[in-house]
Amino acid sequence: MTRSGGIAVLAVLAAQVAAADALRIGDRELGEYLSSECVTCHQLSGRYDGIPSIVGWPPDSFIAILTDYREKRRENPVMRSIAVKFTDEEIAALAAYFGSMAPTTGSLAPKTD
């Protein structure tokens, strides 16, 4: 009884860890769909023509910046309207997707402004 209860607890813990991982790592498939919206402006190649590259960013920076737009702590109205309806899971998914890619041109450093 105790033993099977312990297993159940472990299973629950494992499930929670998996869920937390999913949130931290992000659902790449969801990220791929959501990313199609981003690449209208932010080129997948990482090229800069007036709009910053978002390819290859560290996920933590990506999450922080996009969350700032969602919370309207950053100014650009286009990005605010893009981010407005994103859930934390969706932001994590995007961070996972773009973070997993390497730019083929240009710089990958996130801008801080």
Binding site: V39, T40, C41, H42, Q43, D49, G50, I51, V78
Partner: peptide, 14 residues
């Protein structure tokens, strides 16, 4: 203005 030029490059590549 810069955003406009950047968007055009992005969307046409897309």
């Amino acid at each position: 203005s810069e955003e406009n030029i950047g968007w055009y490059s992005g969307i046409t590549a897309d």
